[in-house]
Structure formats: structure tokens, C-alpha cells
């Protein structure tokens, strides 16, 4: 399968994502320049972390108008798989593929540390290979990671099973002190209603080898590889 990694001006996790896909997972991977309008036949599009357009105005607010985003939105609306990580999550919210907004961390500090994520649903294409009853140890690095939405929309997210990852403690329990940024409902990652678009603040691409401190991020990528291997190969 093929991962397409979008590079915006100011992206800085694009190489991490590319390296994880190409060398750790041994899959095809290609960088996609933000001015391109083609997704180069990718199966999965990754919007990587970083500070696209210097985070001017609001995080992700300018990047969503990059030419490639038209193609990404069209791809996602047709069922294509898209993952936005950190700044990529912010871009997905700004362009409306995911609901809500990310505001400044409640304590105002940049948060850079390992977090434990509770996997709320193991039946999705992003989590089928995640171990049950065990949190994922994956790092965060952000200043604007505080998920916000209207109460009614939060209820919808919950009822539709769109909350995929929540911040938890090392035992996988949502507890006092395990939420690093003030996110409502401890939200670390959500999907769209159809389940083909994922946005998450933690960085799975930075946790793909033991030497990096954790390889729990592999569970997410392996879930996708499993999903696409089961699917018949692309024609042509």
C-alpha cells in the first residue's frame, strides 16, 4: 500500500511520517508538495505535524487553503483514508473534515511528553491491531491541543463512537492528571462519522521503534496495513 505525506511550508514531522511508512513499515511512501493537486494514487494521506504557515491566524487556518487540500477533501469525501497528526489534526478541523476546534492548552505551556492513550474502539481501520486492555504510549508536542466543541456536538461524537483515543494513565484509565492540555472529554483523537478520517494530537510516527522510547505507534500504522492488505489490490 502507499502512504502520501503532505508537506506544507512549516511542516516538520513529514520526514518522520515518511520514514515510518517507508522504512519501518516497508510500504510505498511519497512526499506530496502542498501546491500539488494530485495525491499520486496514495491509499492513505498523512497530514503531518509542524507549524504550517507559522501557525499564523490560527493553527491550520491557512494550510487548509493550500491547493492540495481541495484534492484531500475530495478524496476523504469519497471514502479515502486520511490521518491528520497534530498540526494535521488542526488542519482537518479548520477545513471541516472533522468537527470542533483545538484551542490553546489550558495551562498555556507547550506540552512535550509521553502520554498514554486509551483506545476507545478496536473495530476501526486505525485500531484493529491495537492490543486490547492496554494503553498506547505515544508522545505529544503541542501548544494548541485543547479540544473544544459544543456540548451537543460532543454528545454526538460520543454517541456515534467518533472518539477514538482519550488521554489516560499508564493503566489505561482516564484519571485526574492524565489529561495534558484541558481537552474536553479527555479527547486525544477523533474520526469523522464514516470512520475514514482520523485526527489526533499525539504523534504515532514518533513512536515506531523501541529506540525512540516506544513503538506503540506501530499498532496504528499496522492496523492500516492490515486493512489495505485485505483489500483487493488496485487495478492498473
Amino acid at each position: 500500500m502507499k502512504f502520501g505525506v503532505v508537506t506544507f511550508p512549516g511542516s516538520n514531522c513529514d520526514y518522520d511520517a515518511y520514514t515510518a511508512a517507508k522504512f519501518t513499515l516497508n510500504q510505498e511512501a511519497e512526499f506530496l508538495w502542498h501546491k500539488s493537486e494530485s495525491l499520486a494514487n496514495s491509499d492513505v494521506i498523512i497530514l503531518p505535524g509542524g507549524f504550517s504557515y507559522g501557525d499564523y491566524l490560527r493553527s491550520g487556518a491557512i494550510a487548509r487553503f493550500s491547493p492540495i487540500m481541495k484534492a484531500v477533501v475530495k478524496f476523504a469525501e469519497a471514502g479515502g483514508v486520511v490521518i491528520g497528526i497534530c498540526n494535521g489534526f488542526q488542519i482537518l478541523l479548520e477545513c471541516g473534515l472533522l468537527p470542533g476546534a483545538l484551542i490553546r492548552n489550558s495551562h498555556l505551556r507547550f506540552a512535550c511528553k509521553y502520554t498514554y492513550l486509551k483506545v476507545e474502539d478496536h473495530s476501526t481501520i486505525f485500531t484493529s491491531d491495537c492490543p486490547v486492555g492496554q494503553p498506547l504510549k505515544i508522545p505529544i508536542a503541542h501548544g494548541d491541543g485543547n479540544y473544544y466543541n459544543f456540548q451537543a456536538d460532543l454528545k454526538d461524537l460520543k454517541n456515534n463512537g467518533q472518539i477514538l483515543f482519550t488521554y489516560a494513565d499508564a493503566n489505561g484509565q482516564n484519571s485526574n492528571g492524565s489529561n495534558p492540555n484541558g481537552s474536553l472529554l479527555d479527547i486525544a483523537g477523533i474520526t469523522n462519522r464514516d470512520g475514514n478520517v482520523l485526527g489526533m494530537m499525539p504523534h504515532p510516527e514518533r513512536a515506531v521503534e523501541k529506540i525512540l522510547g516506544s513503538d506503540d505507534g506501530l499498532h496504528i500504522f499496522n492496523s492500516l496495513v492490515t486493512h489495505f492488505e485485505k483489500r483487493p489490490a488496485r487495478a492498473g
Binding site: I103, S106, G182
Partner: peptide
């Protein structure tokens, strides 16, 4: 400006 019901950590600080 942020809506009244949205936390404004900068304002608070």
C-alpha cells in the same frame, strides 16, 4: 474574539 463560553487561557493569565 473567543466566544464567552470558550475558555480564554491568555486572558486569564
Amino acid at each position: 474574539r473567543l466566544k464567552d463560553e470558550v475558555l480564554d487561557p491568555q486572558g486569564k493569565t
